[in-house]
């Protein structure tokens, strides 16, 4: 029996590496930003997997469905979930600024290709 978290960890690492490959090799800046988002996605899956427990439930107390301590004993780890919430918002903020920068550069240059923008070679 393959463990659920092993599958999720593998998926997340593959996503991170795919995104990294894209970010390093793509010349189109829009694609680079998409690659960055793929990395972010992988990282978020990675973080949320850390909070996975076997047969866990959502970490929310429900009044009137069993004693609170019973509920507490079956909850998944809420901490990684809250970290992911923060990480998603931060990733969103970065993407918005990145796209605006690219749009602005496109206005000046009429291209979003790295190879045609001198300063962006690295």
């Amino acid at each position: 029996m393959i463990s659920v978290s092993a599958v999720l960890y593998t998926t997340s690492i593959i996503l991170i590496l795919l995104g990294l490959y894209g970010a390093l090799t793509r010349k189109n800046l829009i694609r680079t930003v998409i690659s960055l988002d793929v990395i972010d996605l992988g990282v978020n899956i990675f973080l949320i997997t850390i909070g996975y427990i076997k047969d866990g439930r959502a970490p929310i107390y429900v009044v009137g469905s069993g004693s609170l301590s019973d509920q507490a004993a079956r909850m998944a780890d809420p901490l990684p979930q809250s970290l992911v919430l923060t990480a998603i918002v931060i990733g969103f903020g970065v993407t918005a600024v990145a796209l605006t920068l690219i749009m602005r550069l496109y206005e000046k240059r009429k291209t979003v290709e790295v190879s045609e923008t001198r300063g962006l070679k690295w």
Partner: peptide, 18 residues
């Protein structure tokens, strides 16, 4: 990473739940 799924929440998560 490739071990069996944990059945126990980590320390800080437990503190948070409690």
């Amino acid at each position: 990473l490739w071990v069996d799924d944990p059945s126990q929440v980590r320390t800080l998560g437990q503190a948070a739940i409690g």
